[in-house]
Amino acid sequence: MSNLEANQIHALPWLEDSYALSQEQQASYQRDGHIVLRGVANEAEINIYEPIISDLVKKLNNQDKPLDQRDTYGKAFIQISNLWEQSEAIQRFVFAKRFAKIAADLMGVDGVRMYHDQALYKEPHGGHTPWHQDQIYWPLDTDKTITMWMPLVPISEAVGSMTFASQSHLLGYINKMVISDESHRTLAGYIEGKGFETKSHGAMAAGDATFHAGWTLHSAPGNPTDTMRKVMTVIYYADGLQIAEPDSKARESDLKRWFPGLQPGELAASELNPLLYSRK
């Protein structure tokens, strides 16, 4: 890295200060399995980091099929994982102590490690994201996982945030269906049968964020606008967890990718899973 590049990275916002959560907000998350928090990153911070993230997403995106020639998953979003490995600037954003402390506070744990980050860019007129549970992919036997979902551009009511099935996280592992048309049909019926309230947090400003538990059922509408829905996500889990025995191909794949060199029963702490916040 040149001195110029080092100075440019050093000048980026650190995002180390705390975001105050009320007891009511923490209780709401614990009850419903999701919450929206406004202004987790401010406008000036987003204005600096969004172009950096978007430039790398554009560079790494290898999706070349037109929307109408993709399957449901392919229509849902451009998905790029672990941008922090490719960019020291993005690493500073993804590793933000401010974000990680919120995750720890909402889950009520002493520390959190990173599972991975994901840019989820829903293209103009892109398709919906089917109902699913995130944690069916993760070889972790716990209820202490959480995802931060932060738009990097304003999201109108027409696009909206994700839709959550409130309190569905309390049931844990519902089934092993990966994101698909089948998961959407089956889980929509399940949600209706259980009588879960579904809730979207509506329009969001850049830098607002939702947080949801790994077991919370959620979906997202399509993008009916002519602009890209740019979202950055970070997945956290409680420090001190052990890797679970994979019970599906999806979890076997994730074990190899996100816990390289580790085996079931070992501490979930590979080189890709840094401790991002600890009260100790």
Rank of each mutant, 00 (worst) to 15 (best):
Y190T: 13
Y190C: 14
I191H: 04
I191Y: 04
E192H: 15
E192L: 14
G193P: 13
G193I: 09
K194P: 07
F196H: 08
E197Q: 15
E197G: 15
T198P: 11
T198I: 14
K199G: 11
K199A: 15
S200D: 12
H201E: 15
H201G: 14
H201D: 13
H201W: 11
A203K: 03
A203R: 03
A203F: 11
A203Y: 10
A203V: 03
M204A: 13
M204I: 03
A206T: 00
A206F: 10
A206M: 14
A206C: 10
G207K: 02
D208Y: 01
D208M: 04
D208C: 09
A209L: 09
F211M: 08
H212N: 06
A213C: 08
G214W: 04
G214E: 10
W215R: 04
W215E: 01
W215T: 07
W215G: 00
T216F: 07
T216C: 11
L217W: 05
H218E: 02
H218L: 08
H218G: 05
S219V: 05
S219Y: 10
A220G: 15
G222Q: 06
P224N: 13
D226L: 15
D226C: 11
D226F: 15
T227V: 11
T227A: 10
T227F: 09
M228N: 09
R229A: 02
R229I: 06
R229V: 05
K230H: 12
K230I: 09
M232P: 02
M232E: 10
M232V: 02
M232L: 15
T233H: 08
T233K: 10
V234L: 08
V234R: 00
Y236R: 05
Y236D: 01
Y236F: 13
Y237R: 06
A238L: 02
G240F: 02
L241T: 01
L241Q: 10
Q242P: 05
Q242C: 09
Q242R: 08
A244W: 00
P246S: 04
P246R: 03
D247Y: 06
S248C: 05
S248Y: 03
S248Q: 07
K249G: 10
A250G: 08
A250Q: 08
A250V: 06
R251D: 02
R251P: 04
E252D: 13
E252P: 04
E252V: 06
S253W: 05
S253Y: 07
S253H: 12
D254Q: 09
L255T: 05
